[in-house]
């Protein structure tokens, strides 16, 4: 690791000020899982690491605006052990699949949402888009774990977040804050600019190596995630994990279903690890409305969700995997998933 400054603020204002300095070339440290890996691999070189774990207003789960608000410092274990766990099953499905107490004890939702791609070209120093001499290394290289959707541009990695698919399916919003400066009558004043953004608008597909994978601007961060009231929405996430232990999913799907007498009235399906961003399957979800979820219906929805897949040279298999993930998420949400591994 290269050297950097370190700060451990206790308030939001202080944290934002610390993050805004060095032109925003600062990194947020919470659970630490991915940040340390990026630093050790020299993929990022922040001038300062801001440890936000002591910002107490960013911890905990509270009712908010008809739903719940989860602070960025809330650990996965804390979420899992909270009363809301019963309502938001699709998030708990992911926590359940992490299978490493060290990660669930320290990891956070916000941290997961901000993970950078695990693309092995990126992590081995070839840049986010892995271009060499104007050519994509991924396109003809070893792309077995890469994107099968949304991959027509230069970005061919897959979004790393495991919680984004279920959270987007829940229509979650994130609270983004940044420090703003105003000068009035020669006096400089700092204030906190707060925005609530639907999570589905948070992720971006970069077109150049200098763009990011989220809308976050220098000095900005997620402080909270908001979920609407669960009411009687059914939800589930299905992740395809090669290992029965700590592992990155090869494909995942999350769904939220509003049912009325067994008939789908509302549906949202979001896939993970198949595209540079979480991938919303709008058509498949729309098609489900008015139907009763059966194995066949779920299978068809899976196929629809992947109908426009454009697999690369070595990852055709992921299409089948992702279809299965969609099918099984739907069946799981409706208590019909029985035989799987």
């Amino acid at each position: 690791m290269r050297s950097f400054e370190y700060a451990r603020p206790e308030t939001e204002a202080e944290a934002l000020e610390l993050l805004s300095e060095h032109g925003g070339n600062t990194a947020v440290l919470a659970g630490g899982t991915d940040l340390m890996n990026l630093l050790k691999r020299d993929v990022i070189q922040p001038a300062r690491v801001v440890d936000i774990k002591s910002v107490s207003s960013w911890r905990g789960i509270k009712p908010h605006d008809g739903g719940v608000m989860i602070g960025a410092n809330t650990t996965l274990d804390e979420i899992n052990e909270h009363a809301i766990a019963a309502d938001y099953r699709s998030l708990i499905d992911v926590i359940d699949g992490i299978r490493a107490i060290q990660i669930t004890a320290n990891g956070t939702l916000a941290g997961d949402l901000c993970q950078l791609p695990h693309c092995w070209y990126f992590r081995n120093g070839y840049g986010l888009l892995a271009m060499k001499d104007g050519e994509s290394l991924v396109a003809t290289g070893d792309n077995r774990y890469h994107a099968i959707l949304g991959n027509s541009g230069p970005a061919k990695f897959v979004s790393a977040s495991r919680f984004a698919p279920p959270a987007i399916a829940w229509n979650a919003k994130v609270r983004l804050v940044t420090q703003t400066r105003s000068v009035s009558e020669g006096v400089e004043a700092m204030s906190v600019k707060e925005e609530w953004l639907p999570l589905e608008y948070f992720f971006l597909t970069p077109k150049t190596n200098s763009q990011g994978v989220t809308v976050l601007k220098p000095g900005q961060l997620i402080t909270h995630l908001w979920l609407p009231a669960a009411s009687d929405t059914r939800s589930a996430t299905y992740e395809v994990l090669e290992l029965n232990g700590l592992d990155q999913p090869q494909a995942s799907a999350a769904c939220c279903l509003g049912l009325d007498g067994g008939i789908v009235r509302q549906a949202k399906i979001v896939l993970g690890h198949v595209a540079p961003t979480p991938w919303i399957a709008h058509e498949a979800a729309k098609w489900l409305v008015g139907q009763q979820i059966t194995s066949d219906i779920a299978e068809t929805a899976g196929r629809m969700a992947l109908a426009k897949a454009t697999p690369l040279s070595h990852n055709d298999y992921k299409v089948q995997m992702a279809q299965t993930a969609v099918k099984r998420a739907l069946l799981k949400a409706t208590n019909q998933l029985h035989e799987t591994l």
Binding site: L19, G32, T33, D34, L35, A110, G111, C114, G212
Partner: peptide, 9 residues
């Protein structure tokens, strides 16, 4: 880019 775990750009 933004680093892990609740990152900033």
């Amino acid at each position: 880019s933004g680093a892990a775990v609740a990152v900033t750009a």
